[in-house]
């Protein structure tokens, strides 16, 4: 049972109406554990940066609210999954990687090895020069070529 309802105004912003009738224009949903548990623990933040509602589990929400939140998150979240590393310019950093991602092919520039963060279960999070994060959910599950390249940076 949700204690709020969400609508979208003509300016494209999410408007949240709480059970007590207060209306917050321009709310943003944020995940508390975007990597460890993306679907658990979401908060709705007001424009001023205060929490206005806490959603313990995304599945607890009714369909309409959930769709709203998912749509908003889809527009904000950008963490392409690297499916394949086609090529790297050098094994020394800074190095330009040509990668195949879940969001299409692109090139990223790795500034230093410390921009590769290890996640549990062989996952990796790679930050490029401009701060875009790329995710490798399980590096052991990648193809041989990509794995071989990755090994050189780990």
């Amino acid at each position: 049972m949700s204690t709020f309802s969400l609508t979208r105004n003509p300016a494209g912003r999410l408007v949240c109406t709480l059970a007590d009738g207060t209306v917050h224009a321009n709310t943003t949903p944020v995940r508390a554990f975007p990597l460890a548990a993306p679907d658990e623990g979401l908060a709705l933040m007001s424009q001023e940066g205060h929490e206005i509602a806490w959603i313990a589990r995304l599945s607890d929400l009714d369909a309409a609210n959930r769709a709203m939140i998912e749509e908003e998150l889809a527009g904000r979240e950008f963490m392409p999954e690297i499916q394949r590393i086609t090529d790297v310019s050098s094994f020394a950093t800074p190095s330009t990687w040509s990668v195949q991602t879940s969001r299409g092919p692109t090139a990223l520039v790795l500034k230093g090895e410390e921009d590769i963060r290890r996640l549990p279960d062989n996952g990796l999070l790679i930050a490029d020069r401009h701060g875009v994060l790329y995710l490798i959910p399980d590096r052991k599950a990648m193809d041989r070529h990509s794995r071989k390249i990755l090994e050189r940076f780990l």
Binding site: A74, G75, E77, F78, P80, T101, R103, G104, P105, T106
Partner: peptide, 10 residues
């Protein structure tokens, strides 16, 4: 632009 509105590289 290097992304489209669905956030794919294009």
């Amino acid at each position: 632009l290097d992304l489209d509105s669905t956030l794919r590289f294009s």
